[in-house]
């Protein structure tokens, strides 16, 4: 039996496995960067890691602070600009990208802009950033959902998934064939999208979680795969890599923040 792991480590590994060798990968901050580093180290050594700020083919040595963080690597292979990072995506050179979730509906459409009224928001979220264009034109999009919620109707429609489901994304004529979200990961399981209806279904469940636990968060009648699998126990190699590369990721945001604040207070006093 391998050594004990944290939930965040399990999630990072599940995301990293979505990166295949020789692929071109756009990484977002947080979980995806650590997943990218893990994939590059263990599963996909020839993957080309990219950031939308124009940092192309980098080897992360530290978790990124943001998507323009050249301090977290020792140089990189190609310095281009943001404009070109998106036109390169538009032309089909990006295999997979990773997006966070504020609200998501059953067809993988996303809101990362505002909760409540857009003009007088209950909560103003970041906005689109690169999300709307990446999910439009990357060959695959992986949704990482650490907070956020499942809703029947988005408060604001930031980024297009499968629109009204079925062939509506394809019929719109606005997106490359076969593009769209392929997987959504949250703290309870992994969801994929039905090839015909494009509705998300539960494909994999994390250890110690029941299907009912998953359903509690979801306002529609969630479909579950006949061959529902359980996320496998991480290997020692995987755990060691993540814990060493991104200890704050292993700890999770809340604990890492608590320990950081405690240290900050200690520094302030001394």
């Amino acid at each position: 039996m391998s050594k004990p792991y944290t939930l965040q480590e399990l999630l990072v590994i599940a995301v990293a496995k979505e990166i295949h060798d020789f692929e071109n990968v756009i990484l977002g901050v947080g979980l995806p960067t650590t997943a990218g580093a893990l994939a590059k180290a263990l599963y996909a050594p020839h993957a080309t890691l990219m950031m939308e700020s124009g940092i192309i083919d980098f080897e992360p040595l530290l978790p990124l602070n943001h998507i323009a963080d050249a301090h977290s690597c020792r140089g990189f292979s190609y310095a281009t600009d943001l404009f070109s990072a998106f036109t390169m995506t538009y032309r089909g050179f990006v295999d997979v990208c990773f997006l966070g979730v504020g609200q998501v509906d059953r067809y993988g459409n996303l809101n990362t802009t505002a909760i409540g009224d857009y003009y007088k928001p209950t909560m103003r979220l970041p906005g689109s950033g690169g999300a709307a264009d990446f999910i439009s034109y990357a060959k695959r999009t992986v949704l990482t959902m650490l907070g956020g919620s499942f809703v029947n109707k988005l408060d604001y429609f930031t980024s297009p998934g499968y629109l009204e489901g079925g062939d509506s994304r394809k019929k719109s004529g606005l997106f490359p064939e076969g593009s769209g979200p392929t997987m959504l990961l949250n703290t309870k399981g992994i969801f994929r999208f039905d090839p015909v209806t494009k509705e998300m279904y539960l494909a994999q469940i994390h250890p110690r979680v029941t299907v009912d636990d998953v359903r509690k968060d979801i306002p529609w009648d969630l479909k579950v795969a006949d061959d529902l699998s359980e996320t496998p126990h991480p290997t020692d190699e995987e755990i060691d890599f993540i814990r060493c590369f991104a200890p704050a990721m292993s700890a999770g945001r809340e604990l890492a923040m608590e320990l950081t604040m405690a240290n900050l207070m200690k520094q302030l006093k001394s």
Binding site: Y90, S128, A132, D133, I135, S136, Y137, F157, T158, P160
Partner: peptide, 15 residues
Amino acid sequence: VLEGAMVTDLFHKRS
């Protein structure tokens, strides 16, 4: 710009 955003609220909600 990239036409996909035409279906979103970025396009529909304006200030």
